[in-house]
Structure formats: structure tokens, C-alpha cells
Amino acid sequence: MTFRLRHLLGIEPLTPADIRTILDLADQYVDLSRGASKHSDVLAGLTQINMFFEASTRTQASFEIAGKRLGADVMNMAMQASSIKKGETLIDTALTLNAMHPDLLVVRHPQSGAVDLLAQKVNCAVLNAGDGRHEHPTQALLDALTIRRAKGRLHRLTIAICGDIAHSRVARSNILLLGKMENRVRLIGPPTLIPAKAAEFGVEVFDDMRAGLEGADVVMMLRLQKERMDGGFIPSEREYYHRFGLDAEKLAHAKDDAIVMHPGPMNRGVEIDGTLADDINRSVIQEQVEMGVAVRMAAMDLLARNLRAERAAGGGVYV
């Protein structure tokens, strides 16, 4: 095993081998989670703090369950309601928490790069649970695991990512991961929601959804945030649904066995047809949630191993 990272801040620093290591271990944790006893002790004695500076239900719950299944002591901090309001800076908050000796820090922040900044100031393992529009690595990893289990491989697939790419950290992490694993990635969306110079990411860009879906193995839908719907980026919700909402007719352009994914929470009738989202033959949206817990267990397990090895080697002075 070659996984040597101290933090999981993004997909960008990962090698294909790192990605495979995480996914292989996650496969084992899927089995554990489906078993009669869902408990392991690999994180016993470690403290995991979930710091969410931005509202989250599923990611936070997923990290919490992952930590608890592995025996860590898990604490959730809703940072929106706390010292940030009192004017404390991110770094001071980090230093304060650091003094409590956490081992795993799970951080979500509305600003790109904020989790990197925080990771420089603490001496525990930091997991990025989403920073601004930058990265959301565990989401990309759980998507990768879902694809690998559904398709039997994670290379040479044609994967269409549709919707608000510009504001999506999920899209960025997925583009990076799927590219590293040698897949053909397509971005589909109105040009106002496609990031500048997207073609330089090594992807194909489409503003015609049917053309973009042609022959796709995987259709990954993204959430369109409410605040972007009114005139600023797209003319209206209904026009968006007409042109970019996934329904059976548009999906027919993809391969017959194409799977449909969505990171949630879904806007039924905005970016995806409700019936399609519930179609167990096409939609793997529920599997994604399940894989999320397993991938987070794997990531925290691997980081904890490195942390323990580093401490055993006497590296890092713990304040």
C-alpha cells in the first residue's frame, strides 16, 4: 500500500494508485456496513471533529456514521452558529480546536481554499468535506466507487456531467478523478454555467444535452442551486428543465445500460425527472449514499494509519 497522504484536501494530489487503494478498502467497508455487526475498532481512541461552516445534512451525517462505525469519538460542530459570528478568524478557530487534540478534522467551508489554509495550521489529519467551488474529494470517490461497482470498471467509460458545473466542487473533483482514471468526460450545461476554459481540463463541452449524452455510460446530474435560477445565469427554471433536465427522452440518447447519478439533494422537476430518479433500473442515487459512508470510512482509516505511523516515528510535536 502506498497511500502516504497526511490530509485528504482534494483529488488533485492523489495518484491513480491512491484512488484504487481508497476504493478497494471502501469495498470492504461496504461489506462491513451491510453485515450484522456494523462495528470496527480501527479508529478507537481517536477523536473526529466535523466542522461544517456551511449547512449540510447528508455529508455531515455520512462522516458521522463513518466515524462511529469505526469506533472514533465523533463530535459535530455547527460553525455557522458559533464563534464565526463572534468575529473569530478561521485560523483562530482552527488553533482553538487543535488544542483539543483532535485526530481527524472534517471541514466544510463556503470559500475555495479555506480547508487548505486550515490544514496548514493544525497537526491532525484534515478531510475536505467541500470548500467553496474548489473540491469535494469524498463525493468524487463515492461516485467512483458507485461507478466501479455498477460498471465493473473505472476506466474507458464515457461519463457525462450535466448542469451547473461552474459553481460545483463536485464537478471539479469528479473531472479530476475521472480524468486520472482515464475516462472520457463530457460536460453538459448552458455556457453561463460552464467554467471558463473548461475545454482545457481535458474534457468535451456540450451545450446540447442530447448530443452530449450520446453513447454515455454514466450520466451524472448536478444540483442547480435555487439562487442561480432567476435570470442571472439561466432565464428560468422551466427553460432550464426543458433544455437540461434529465428525462427518459433525453436519457434515451445515452447507452441502454447507462446509469444515472446525482449527488443530492435533488430538485425534482428542475434538473431531473422524479420518476427517473426513482427508477431502480437506471438510478444509482441511493447506492451513492451508501457508498459515501464506505468511502469516508476508508479515507479516515487510511489517514489514521498514516497519522499513527507518523506519531510512532516521533514526527510532529503535538501541542
Binding site: 467553496g132 473540491e135 471539479r172 481540463f201
Partner: peptide, 15 residues
């Protein structure tokens, strides 16, 4: 500044 770098870093950019 608008470009691949800003897009990948997720930073709001100006043309």
C-alpha cells in the same frame, strides 16, 4: 483572472 487555473481552483474570476 479568467482561465483554467481560476476555474480549477474554484475562484471567482474576471476576464
Amino acid at each position: 483572472t479568467t482561465g483554467k487555473f481560476a476555474s480549477l481552483r474554484g475562484l471567482p474570476a474576471v476576464s
